[in-house]
């Protein structure tokens, strides 16, 4: 058999799951969709002693609209969210990014919360939730707490989750008036890990000036990277072609320190970030002006 032996638990409720988690601590791994964990176990890169399977915790799979935004249960399948009209209407950036998450078969099984808690620097949902200022509700036997995406991602596969904590819910603020968004990623083959990607959430004020810009990049650092100096160049300005070019330049050369690996050199990744910024921002600002645009489909 491919994976190493493990002790298997299949709780039916969140309470049972966190009780088991507290009992076993770091020795235990939570099994959500398993589309990253099981490959790692098949390679025996991961050999958890205890596996706590969340797939029977039905109370963690839901999509609900609320006053402060959209609530997505952590065990919601990526495919369900991709097909959800509520997500398309209330969290259009999530809707636009989901088709970039691996392949359809992976998305039938993969979960929204699993992808975020795994915090792979190349994955889409951490960048998207960071751009959207999402909040995450964490549960443990000690209670619940809410953490912002800015606080949650702490480095390479690193999150604010403690050993007895479980990511229970993702809360996404509703799009404000004048909000725009855009997502694009470049990978060698459709569904592969992106060599670089950008999730952008912007806002225009009544005068058409940029009042908010959150640009979250993937695959260019230890986790999702917020391009803060690029955002600064945009704030208070009209998003002209020149302003967008300046932001793209800042994102590529000031905001990131990308790795060189077998997939792409650091220089190439900077170039991709520049191109992606110039591609995504005009669409995001067009949407902020109320122009209805179809999502950017896969970039060859």
């Amino acid at each position: 058999m491919k994976p190493a032996p493990f002790e298997y638990h299949r709780p039916g409720t969140t309470d049972e799951a966190v009780t088991l988690l507290a009992e076993h601590g770091w020795e235990a791994k939570l099994l959500a969709g398993g589309q990253s964990l099981i490959p790692a176990m098949n390679f025996r890169l991961a050999q958890p002693g205890v596996l706590i399977d969340l797939n029977n915790v039905e109370e963690l799979a839901y999509i609900r609209d609320g006053d402060v935004g959209l609530h997505i249960g952590a065990m919601t399948r990526q495919r369900s969210a991709e097909r959800s009209e509520l997500v398309a209407a209330r969290a259009p950036l999530v809707h636009e990014a989901l088709p970039f998450v691996a392949h359809p078969q992976i998305r039938s099984r993969g979960t929204i919360g699993g992808s975020i808690a795994h915090a792979d620097p190349a994955s889409e949902l951490p960048a998207v939730t960071l751009a959207l200022e999402a909040r995450f509700r964490l549960r443990s036997p000690r209670g619940a707490r809410s953490v912002s995406a800015d606080e949650f991602f702490t480095g390479l596969f690193g999150t604010a989750l403690e050993s007895d904590e479980l990511l229970a819910e993702i809360e996404i603020p509703p799009p404000a008036d004048g909000a725009g968004w855009g997502f694009a990623e470049i990978s060698r083959r459709h569904g592969d890990y992106g060599l670089a990607g950008l999730a952008a959430a912007v806002q225009l004020d009544g005068d058409g000036k940029c009042s908010k810009a959150r640009l979250a990049l993937l695959s260019v650092g230890d986790g999702p990277v917020l391009a803060t100096s690029a955002a600064e160049t945009l704030l208070g300005a009209e998003p002209s072609e020149e302003a967008i070019r300046a932001a793209a330049n800042a994102a590529a050369h000031r905001d990131i320190d990308p790795p060189s690996d077998i997939h792409a050199s650091a220089a190439y990744r900077r170039r991709l970030v520049e191109v992606l910024t110039r591609r995504v921002l005009p669409r995001a600002f067009d949407r902020a002006r109320g122009v209805d645009l179809k999502p950017i489909t896969h970039e060859a």
Binding site: G34, N42, N55, Q105, S108, R109
Partner: peptide, 19 residues
């Protein structure tokens, strides 16, 4: 290894039989 689980295409190598 793609099969259907409750009508949806999934990779059977990335699911434990017990699931």
């Amino acid at each position: 290894c793609t099969i259907l689980m409750d009508g949806e295409a999934v990779r059977s190598c990335l699911i434990f039989a017990v699931q």
